[in-house]
Computed example of a mutant assay.
Amino acid sequence: MRLLHTSDWHVGRTFHGADTLDALADALGAIAGIVRDRGVDAVLVAGDVYDSAMPAGRHVEALTLALGEIRAAGAEIVLASGNHDSAARLGANAGFARAGGLHLSTLALEPESWRVELADEHGPVHVFAVPYLEPVALRSSLPEAGIASQDDAIAWAMAAVRASLAESPARSVVLAHCFAAGVAAPEDDAPRDITAGGLDVVPASRFEGVDYVALGHLHSRQELSRSVRYSGAPLYYSFKERSPLRGGWLVDLDADGLAEVEWVDLPVPRQLTTIEGELDALLADARLEGTEEHWIRARLTDRVRPMDAMRRLRARWLHAAEVQWLGGDDLPAIEVRARLARRSEAEVVGDFLEHVRAGAGATDAEAALVRDGLARAVAAESAQ
């Protein structure tokens, strides 16, 4: 059986205010081409299908068209909800969709609904599409499970997966949307909320016992082990995404389980380029010829902040998206803001308490209350 592992489509997301829907449509159309050309049996989408819990009508239409093209190309689709998705909206009419080969997994509290049964000449393949698991919501609904963190939530989910496999043995694949230990430091490649409240790191060992684990949540491809991987997003969504490659993992299962994993590229409509120097020098730099159609981040080193820097940059680079001024007396402040941007909400609260208490930070009990409150806020946003 041949599977294509993708994730984090984020239909409706912009890039520094620029619409990306046409570029994403091209990338998702290329997935349909891969299905036809490479004989893919099922396309996996490991969460964050939409960028918003309330997608606009044209974003729903674009997703519907893309899914229809993939089905017409011959693959079934297994799709799990992510933290950006509204589980209720995305999962609407899941029963009818299943009859057409689109398997929507959005019910966090119903592990029996996660299993999608596929089959090839070697027998059954059970795909467990675990939707995004919010620890606070699970703790409220399953107080006896003792779920206090994302790690606990995944441990609970994997216990359900193993119980299902014990009852009905088969080759197995798991989709999950989380931040797993062992990936490269995320910087802003990872979602901002991965360290807020209960959304913590999940050890990769939690996923032992299945043939392949298709992860989503990070936007660059990562390989934690031969059988545990992130595919990343189909488009660039940040200048700091670690991998310049966009695509997915082509996963082959034979009679014994995982046989081979191969990377397949998706089209990149516009490259990311960071340029650095004084503005006038950059505008005249012949070495930058050929970058005029790229997404541009300009890091300006002029001693005096240039006037109308973005307007002047766009005279050469129409798609200049970000300007950072690194010169002058503001440099220390810029560095401070950069450090602040990398901290989690819980760390910000802890630092504030340490400041107002003259060095005495939050107690363990206070830190737990802060984490719980932040997790509840994230849960409320995800449910909208």
Rank of each mutant, 00 (worst) to 15 (best):
Ala88Glu: 07
Leu28Phe: 04
Ala185Trp: 11
Thr14Cys: 14
Val261Asn: 03
Ser225Lys: 09
Thr195Gly: 15
Ser231Ile: 06
Arg13Met: 14
Asp193Val: 09
Gly361Tyr: 02
Pro55Leu: 01
Glu208Cys: 08
Phe96Ile: 15
Leu165Cys: 02
Gly197Ala: 04
Ala320Ile: 08
Val116Tyr: 07
Leu283Cys: 05
Ala286Arg: 15
Thr64Cys: 13
Thr20Ala: 14
Phe207Arg: 03
Ile147Gln: 11
Glu112Tyr: 07
Ala99Thr: 12
Val213Tyr: 11
Pro332Phe: 13
Val323Trp: 02
Ala286Lys: 14
Arg2Ile: 00
Glu260Asn: 06
Ile296Asp: 01
Ala321Cys: 11
Thr291Asn: 12
Arg71Lys: 12
Phe207Ile: 00
Ala380Gln: 14
Arg337Glu: 04
Ala362Trp: 04
Glu345Trp: 15
Ser220Asp: 02
Leu369Lys: 14
Gly101Asp: 02
Ser225Pro: 12
Glu278Tyr: 08
Ala88Ile: 09
Ala341Leu: 01
Ala159Thr: 05
Ala155Glu: 04
Gly361Gln: 03
Leu67Pro: 01
Ala145Leu: 10
Ser164His: 10
Gly277Phe: 07
Gln271His: 09
Cys178Gln: 06
Arg2Pro: 01
Glu278Asn: 14
Ser168Tyr: 12
Ser231Phe: 05
Val323Ser: 06
Gly290Ile: 06
Trp325Asp: 02
Leu104Val: 05
Leu283Met: 05
Ala148Asn: 14
Asp51Ala: 08
Glu292Ala: 08
Ala155Tyr: 04
His5Gln: 03
Asp351Gly: 14
Glu278Ala: 13
Ala181Glu: 09
Arg303Thr: 07
Ala66Arg: 00
Asp120Phe: 09
Arg192Ser: 13
Glu278Asp: 09
Arg270Trp: 06
Ala97Tyr: 15
Val336Met: 10
Asp256Ala: 15
Ser231Pro: 11
Ala181His: 08
Ala62Arg: 11
Glu144Pro: 05
Leu90Pro: 00
Glu117Asn: 10
His219Cys: 00
Ala346Ile: 09
Leu90Ile: 01
Val45Ala: 13
Val370Pro: 10
Leu102Met: 00
Ala358Cys: 10
Asp200Leu: 03
Val304Pro: 00
Leu67Arg: 05
Val127Asn: 01
Trp317Asp: 02
Asp151Tyr: 15
Met310Trp: 07
Ala367Gln: 13
Ala315Ile: 07
Arg192Thr: 12
Gly39Arg: 04
Ala145Val: 08
Asp193Ser: 13
Thr195Asp: 15
Ala27Gly: 03
Ala87Asn: 01
Ala377Arg: 08
Ala365Tyr: 06
Glu289Asp: 15
Arg376Pro: 09
Gly361Asp: 04
Val11Met: 08
Arg139Cys: 02
Leu215Ala: 03
Asp302Met: 03
Ala72Asn: 10
His177Gln: 01
Arg242Thr: 11
Leu138Tyr: 05
Val378Gly: 05
Ala148Met: 14
Glu262Gly: 08
His355Glu: 15
Glu381Ser: 13
Arg316Val: 07
Leu109Gln: 14
Arg221Ala: 05
Thr106Lys: 01
Tyr230Glu: 05
Val201Gly: 02
Ser168Asn: 11
Leu24Ile: 11
Asp120Gly: 07
Ala190Phe: 14
Arg246Asn: 10
Asp351Val: 12
Ser7Tyr: 07
Arg297His: 15
Arg115Ile: 13
